[in-house]
């Protein structure tokens, strides 16, 4: 085959095409349908928007529903929120073919000016969906107690490898008969040393540990870049 270049390891084209300059910390939020990803994104925006410049990319299964929810909640200015349509395959758009999401992030940074933090919310999918490392720096996996307290024990890439596991809707635990202690034990066993937090985002509880975790990641990135 014709080759007019020396064989070098190609640069990361998945990085911003414009190159140089500040690049936001990209945080992926994945998890099953209904576990509270969008509510978590909204709560994170409220908790962090006065400290850092935030943008949000949603990956809706059915177009702009999640983006529209965030717009209605007015958690950010409209130009800071964008939606990617995923062609009925939300996991493909965050893992196998991330080109549309990369473009959405770049367009956000172009339209809204330099951002510190971009939250990418996946379309609700199953337990195997994870974000590509070409798309995000770190990822949060959101499950909820109503989905079954055996999810941490069952594992799967989201539960075992996410940088932060969020177990949401703990206020429902007694109603659905979920054993929170067991979930915590199973999660710890599955995740090695990776952290897990328990939240009730819709009740306004527990977002602070998640926000603090992101703050710590932002600080670590700033230190690394300096």
């Amino acid at each position: 085959m014709h080759q007019d270049h020396p064989e070098v390891f190609p640069q990361r084209h998945t990085m911003s095409a414009s190159g140089g300059g500040r690049r936001a910390l990209r945080v992926g939020l994945g998890g099953p349908v209904g576990s509270g990803k969008t509510a978590t994104v909204a709560a994170l925006c409220r908790a962090l928007r006065d400290e850092v410049a935030i943008g949000v990319v949603t990956n809706d299964i059915y177009t702009r529903e999640d983006a529209d929810f965030l717009l209605r909640q007015a958690v950010l200015a409209p130009e800071r929120i964008t939606a990617v349509e995923t062609g009925a395959c939300p996991h493909t758009a965050i893992r196998d073919d991330i080109s549309a999401n990369l473009e959405a992030v770049e367009d956000l940074e172009e339209q809204a000016g330099p951002l510190d933090l971009v939250l990418l919310e996946s379309g609700g999918d199953n337990l195997t969906a994870t974000f590509s490392k070409g798309l995000v720096d770190v990822q949060i996996f959101v499950i909820d107690v109503a989905g079954g307290d055996d999810i941490p024990r069952k594992g799967g890439p989201g539960v075992t490898t996410s940088d932060l596991l969020v177990v949401n809707k703990v206020d429902l635990a007694e109603h659905v008969g979920a054993d929170l202690d067991r979930m915590a034990t199973d999660a710890a066993a599955q995740r090695g040393g990776l952290p897990t937090v328990f939240t009730s985002v819709a009740r306004g509880q527990g977002i602070e540990p998640v926000a603090a975790w992101i703050r710590e990641r932002l600080a670590r990135k700033a230190a690394g870049a300096a």
């Binding site: 990617v84 349509e85 062609g87 493909t92 758009a93 196998d96 073919d97 080109s99 549309a100």
Partner: peptide, 17 residues
């Protein structure tokens, strides 16, 4: 190279269309 270029899994965004 043609197989790669024409592969539906080549990460070029086609899956959403």
């Amino acid at each position: 190279a043609l197989l790669l270029l024409a592969d539906g899994r080549f990460p070029a965004g086609g899956h959403a269309h």
